[in-house]
Amino acid sequence: MSEKNKDSQWPLWEVFVQSEQGGPHIHAGSVHAPDPEMALQNARDVYSRRNEAISLWVVPSVSITATMPSDQGPFFDPASDKIYRHPQFYHVPKGLK
């Protein structure tokens, strides 16, 4: 067992892929890698084998801070009654583009 315990694993990186110019980077999955350069190389090979990417981000998984499901109410509900933030809220004369 001691042999196995010694075998740690490389850190985990989250991979974000931009598939077209001007588009957002979208989360694709994760890879293990010893360092940023290798993380990029691995991400390229794993998540862009079919030319899916024109740009890649890799972020150490531990560096991501996320909301918790229990935050859902306080974090996001208050935005839902501010309909004036949405263009549909406004009436404009018909036919106007």
């Binding site: 490389w10 890879v31 293990h32 890698a33 190389q41 691995n42 090979d45 794993v46 084998r49």
Partner: peptide, 11 residues
């Protein structure tokens, strides 16, 4: 040596 490298060498 690792599955990521299987893919890299394959590429």
């Amino acid at each position: 040596p690792v599955i990521e490298e299987d893919i890299a060498l394959g590429n």
